[in-house]
Design a protein around this nucleic acid. Structure first.
Length: 350
DNA sequence: ATACAGGCTCGCC
DNA sequence: GGCGAGCCTGTA
């Protein structure tokens, strides 16, 4: 492994070797060099067609918390593969390592990327299934290209156990701390012009790894009272008592019930995991943002409506892709609020 | 500075 | 079986 990592320095060296055929653009020269040596090393530079996709918005919509902006793109991990991805119009440019040939999960990088980002979701059909009310229309127009991604189950579950009573910025910190403390370091291809050493991506630690840790260790990652829940759930998952993969075949109701039996998982977290890791596009997580939207926009005259009634309403009203509708409403509300608070700050500054 | 955050759990009615 | 308080900690 160390041998392999050492050889990753080769592409940097490649920049010193001019390619006679490439004279116009220095950056394309570098890309070709990256590509050439990358292929030798098992690192690929590929392009994935991605029409109807907005990478930046998707990664900033509060469904995934570990991608970091870098140059024109983002560095992160898809399962255990370190990846750099940037969007150029309708194409994703991706650098990442192919799975080892002996791996049983081996599949082309392009397939992995397309699957992870939900590029096969029929977005036009999904949006057409939303209710046609003004609030939903505004959210839909605002969130063009926002997709629900397919996250690894354990990673998603563990991250959302950590999310309770936390703002996005803090969830990111927790995710990063867990990865750096317990995950496996992987070198990632940087964007052009940076040295490779700047880019280490950490995989999300397995349930088995976290099960071996202690509540004290976990608390060092600023988990607070969530540490106990995360540890208990990690033990259930790693022991096989909770078989996350096998749960894929369960009905929505049974899957939700099983998830809610896990320590630290209530209806909100269960719905997030169903939506972001189990492809249950109907799951409708209700957090404080969505609850605010539902109350203010859909029930402005009924301030005393019970939370349970909101749940029943949202499950029926938003239809078969309610989870997508929820994500659009959520992101729209969050971005509006941020814009408003920025405007206030700017106005106050004058 | 000091509420308050993308909740869950438990104890109390 | 619904309701409220407590839990940890960083951010706005």
């Amino acid at each position: 492994m160390s041998n392999d990592e050492g050889r990753l320095n080769a592409p940097a060296f490649a920049k010193l070797q001019p390619d006679r055929q490439m004279t116009k653009s220095p950056s394309s020269l570098v890309i070709r060099a990256w590509s050439f040596f990358g292929n030798i090393l098992g690192m690929k530079l590929i392009e994935v067609p991605a029409p109807g996709f907005d990478l930046a918005m998707t990664l900033d919509s509060g469904q995934v918390f570990h991608w970091e902006e870098s140059g024109g793109g983002f560095v992160g991990a898809i399962a255990d593969i370190a990846v750099y991805v940037e969007q150029r119009r309708n194409v994703l440019k991706v650098r990442g390592r192919e799975m080892p040939a002996k791996s049983s999960r081996r599949q082309p990088l392009s397939t992995m990327v397309a699957h992870y980002f939900g590029l096969d979701h029929p977005l036009a059909e999904i949006c057409a299934s939303f209710p046609n009310d003004p609030i939903m229309i505004a959210a839909r127009n605002f969130c063009r290209g926002l997709r629900i991604i397919r996250q690894p189950k354990w990673e998603c579950l563990a991250t959302f156990i950590c999310s309770s009573m936390k703002q996005v910025a803090h969830i990111r910190q927790i995710s990063k701390a867990l990865r750096e403390e317990f995950g496996i370091a992987r070198k990632a291809f940087p964007e052009r012009g940076r040295t490779i050493d700047n880019y280490v991506v950490h995989t999300f630690p397995s349930a088995a790894r976290l099960a071996k840790s202690s509540e004290r260790e976990l608390r060092k990652c600023a988990l607070g009272y969530r540490a106990k829940n995360l540890l208990a759930t990690a033990r259930l998952v790693s022991s096989g008592t909770a078989d996350l993969e096998a749960w894929s075949s369960l009905s929505d109701a049974n899957l939700r019930a099983n998830l809610c039996n896990l320590p630290g998982v209530g209806a909100k977290v269960a719905n997030c995991v169903m939506l972001f890791a189990y492809e249950r596009l109907r799951a409708f997580p209700i957090d404080v943002w969505i609850e605010r939207v539902l109350r203010q926009q859909y029930f402005p005259r009924n301030k005393r409506i019970a939370t349970g009634q909101l749940r029943t309403f949202s499950e029926n009203y938003f239809g078969e892709h309610g989870g997508y509708a929820q994500q659009y409403l959520f992101h729209h509300a969050r971005m509006n609020k941020n814009a408003k608070s920025r405007a206030r700050t700017a106005a106050a500054g004058k």
